[in-house]
Design a protein around this nucleic acid. Structure first.
Lengths: 243, 243
DNA sequence: CGTAAATTTGACATCTATCAAGAGCGGTGG
DNA sequence: CCACCGCTCTTGATAGATGTCAAATTTACG
């Protein structure tokens, strides 16, 4: 039944509850619904749906995608456990994109109206809500930063680096992890062709920066990865098996 | 002295005040500061500054830029009158970018702590604040949508189209306007080289979609602009002076 | 174990960045 | 009022990177 509640959730520090008192926590807890597991490929909401709730995955991962008018799917964002999903509807009360599960996932659902209500009563919660929104805005800006890079290699390095940081942030290994998304998803997230992403991974592996095996990634040389994220090409022409 | 206050501001409908009662308006009005005109090139805040206030231009325009670690300037966003500036700091209470005036501008400054205070008291204001934040998030997603396009022509068409919509939204002509930003700013916003932007404008002019004269832009064929925004190249191979 | 999907790899055309130079524009000072 | 200067913008040539098409290979899943 998963009736433990926010107070004992491993995501406590990342979620809305951070920094609010016991009273507030109880109130918040009372409106949070825990949904049955979402299967891979299922949607939490679709483009055009009215804003009813925001969601946080306790485990699993999601992508948010928008189908542009020319029928192309663009990946707007990836969402790891503890990262709020559904804020895209804040502007117009209508969702601008679909939220699709990349893996089987468990989510908490927080009805938005009730959240807003409580937020105006519980002193810390409003601030915390704004902060969580702000973190989400921050991730959007990181995304912008990636897409503004002209070199595919930079975008890819930045993507892996950012993902690594986020895994660390939720208490998983930052140096070895499994990508929840396909190469195609990554390509659509980075504004690149699928093949370019694949080649980018291969190149990083050849250069000894990472090890890839399908969706398993190991970061071998974090410093090099960061360098690549900020410079088009290897600073020092590293000797690649002499040719 | 500009002592007219929010109640009479032409931006009323776009700003925080929309939809809050007379009482709330008075409270809000009491904390809004109107600053002396900002000169072109001046900054409202800099990267790393603590979040003190959010800003709305009453006239003029701003850009927000972030200097990435490799020293490149990236344009994160453009801000027309009525569009909130400063939300980038929500996540960490620290500004992530500089806000620079593109023209001489008059701005309203709203101390953030006081705004948050009042928002929790005035029923409509919290909702309105979230909505304004949401619109800002929406603009970020439009930006992402542009940058995810692989063809420069699509990004440029989308940029002009979006700008046109925003001018209309603030009551100015959507078909004829003056760009407040340089080609270089646009290039850094779109992740393109300056020359590519220039060439893109020229091409649109040659195709009869727009007329450009320096920073003056006239949209001649809105439908064509929208088509270009969603398709790499002219659907119907329009006859360009027969060859 | 077999089939479909995902990923990698190769070849090639195209687009964009880059380097370079020139034109247009606005502002300044004589 | 005109000439000059600097900055922005445009235009051209070229090299390099990425998208596209195609096919082989691996992986995942039933």
């Amino acid at each position: 039944m998963l009736r433990k509640g926010c107070a004992h959730c491993s995501l406590q520090q990342l979620c809305l509850p951070a920094g609010i008192g016991v009273e507030g926590l109880k109130q918040l807890d009372s409106i949070v619904r825990r949904r049955r597991p979402i299967a891979r490929g299922e949607s939490l909401f679709r483009m055009g749906d009215p804003l009813e709730a925001v969601y946080v995955a306790r485990d699993g991962a999601f992508k948010t995608v928008s189908i542009s008018e020319d029928g192309e799917e663009r990946v707007v964002g990836f969402h790891l456990p503890g990262e709020l999903i559904g804020l895209d509807a804040l502007g117009a009360d209508l969702h601008r994109c679909d939220a699709v599960a990349l893996t089987t996932a468990n989510v908490c659902e927080v009805p938005f109206d009730q959240l807003a209500d409580i937020a105006s009563q519980v002193p810390g919660l409003q601030h915390q809500l704004l902060r969580v929104i702000g973190r989400s805005v921050g991730r959007d800006q990181d995304h912008l930063d990636m897409l503004a890079r002209r070199q595919a290699s930079e975008r890819i390095a930045l993507f892996l680096h950012g993902l690594s940081e986020r895994f660390r942030h939720i208490g998983q290994s930052a140096l070895e992890f499994r990508l929840p998304m396909s190469r195609e998803d990554i390509a659509r997230f980075l504004g690149l062709a699928l093949e370019t992403v694949s080649r980018g991974f291969t190149r990083l592996q050849d250069d000894g920066v990472i090890a890839v095996e399908g969706r398993r990634v190991e970061i071998r040389d974090r410093a090099a990865l960061e360098r690549l994220a900020h410079h088009p090409e290897p600073i020092e022409p590293r000797n690649r098996l002499h040719g």
